[in-house]
Design a protein around this nucleic acid. Structure first.
Lengths: 293, 293
DNA sequence: CTCCATTATTCGTAAAGTCGAATAGTGATG
DNA sequence: CATCACTATTCGACTTTACGAATAATGGAG
């Protein structure tokens, strides 16, 4: 049943089988067996596309409810350590900084839990992608439509404005937002063209300031690298800058006029029952961000 | 889960395993595995008694609901011929007369159905006995407490009053209920002592008439046998008398003053979802009584 | 108190299910 | 129009599960 539901959701035997870590053949055989038992064709399938029949659609809905109820009773009585495979998709840099160091302890605490972690930063369709939980930077609403998923804000990362010492030597350090007109920044490209403006807090309000850029990049990694090379001002979460501030490779500027802090969210499907696996992961991951921002 | 529920209901691994046609060992292993997975002890068991723990009791209730929902979806989509084992308990004579002749055709129509038929006439506790459906004579309420079971009246058997020709030769045939005082009957013993009186319809109302008996028996078979020997008047369903009326071994008396007809009921547990098996059996059995009474 | 019938459990064997590679079919592409 | 990449399916090898007889434990009867 769980397999059948996954097949309907992903419109594919192969992807569904991969989600559940099963061989393709098992998916085929299971569906054949299910259809034989019910005496009804549930999936209209060619080698190219899998589409549920009317019966299949209706059966899928009832499956969802049944599986949900089942998971609920399992969770209600399960005092045992969670087991099985958990799939999470995380923003890479964030995970490397906050999650990875504690992962060995987490996995040791739940020895029967297997973790499959992928990296990404777009807002994925959780059920369509077969992911239990995602860790994302930014406000969920602005990352895309977050229909049907629950969110938990685990941290608000303070951002800072920085420049390399080499840049400051040449252009000086801005002391007020007004000074920015005489400065350069490392551009971070926007999908709609151009680049994201700098953000500054002035009299308690955040204002966007467009500053000319000699270079525009499209990844946070590159932006930092360009900043370190002295190509302009950059804005980034404090935790990413910290090591470079400590060794003097970057200096903070406009400390009294910080950009808007970036929230960090954990997201998971709200409509389906939360498995014990996902629950312990969410609690643990949230704890890793405790006291940050 | 189904096995666990059965074990709780029957308070025994052995009986539950027998109900589901499984070896005892499978029951043991399944419960051990279930408890291991949940990490909770569900059944407090010695070799002599099996009692659910508090957790087990709660889990059992949720199991019931889940299994019920599951059966409901299975039935809703199952266009295939029903399969598996069906257990029915029937009143013997009734079954032999009305059901048995059609059984081969029924089993042929559902080749994947296995039938286990037992004979009895007390009102069994369906879930405790592990029976899917019972066929009974009489009104359910008077057979005992019929809590939680659905009933379907499939026939109302007309009863008649009879005597053997030898009896009529000696005592004459009663023409009115008033004549009964000079007659004898074959007694059918009541649990509370004595024997059931004769019943006669007079002016549209049924009246009970106590008639002296030289012999009191405790089974319908014996009652008929004694009647055939001319030991007194007997009252019985018309279908049982028919062959003897045809060959002249019995003659009907007081035809205008018949006893109350006896209803025939099919009973099944109302609280749990009706399986496809049970459903087709009920429909078929009911049809076998079509036009009778 | 002992024995006995009955029960849950264990263990070696057999069948079923699961798996991975090879096969056949389909829709887009050059 | 042929090719290609991808898909669902099939089949043989294998692991897991279910089975049946033997074992240990328990509560009542003599």
């Amino acid at each position: 049943m769980r397999l059948f539901a996954r097949i309907v959701e992903r419109r594919s035997f192969t992807r569904a089988a991969a989600d559940l870590s099963l061989p393709r053949s098992t998916a085929t055989e299971a569906v054949q067996q299910l259809e034989a038992r019910l005496g009804v064709r549930l999936l209209q399938r060619t080698t190219r596309s899998v589409v549920p029949t009317l019966d299949g659609e209706a059966y899928y809905r009832r499956c969802l409810k049944l599986l949900d109820d089942l998971d609920e009773t399992e969770n209600a009585f399960c005092r045992a350590s969670p087991r099985g495979e958990l799939r999470v998709d995380v923003q890479g840099a964030l995970a490397r900084r906050f999650l990875l160091p504690g992962l060995p302890a987490f996995l040791a605490a739940y020895p029967e839990l297997r973790l499959r972690m992928t990296e990404g930063d777009r807002l994925v369709d959780l059920v369509a992608e077969g992911v239990d939980c995602v860790l994302r930077l930014g406000t969920p609403a602005e990352s895309g439509p977050s229909g049907g998923m629950a969110a938990r804000r685990v941290a608000v990362l303070p951002e800072i404005t920085c420049a390399a010492p080499a840049y400051v030597e040449r252009h000086g350090a801005p002391r007020t937002p007004a000074d920015l007109s005489r400065h350069r920044m490392v551009g971070f490209s926007r999908p709609e063209g151009g680049w994201h403006p700098l953000e500054v807090t002035e009299n308690g309000a955040v204002r966007q300031v467009q500053v000319s850029a000699d270079i525009v990049v499209s990844s946070a990694e590159s932006s930092l690298a360009m900043g370190l090379l002295g190509l302009g001002l950059i804005q980034l979460p404090r935790y990413r800058a910290e090591e470079h501030l400590a060794c003097g490779a970057l200096v903070e500027v406009l400390a009294d006029h910080p950009p808007t802090p970036t929230p960090v969210h954990l997201l998971w499907p709200r409509d389906r029952q939360l498995s014990a696996r996902t629950r312990v992961f969410i609690d643990w991951a949230a704890a890793r961000f405790e006291g940050v921002g």
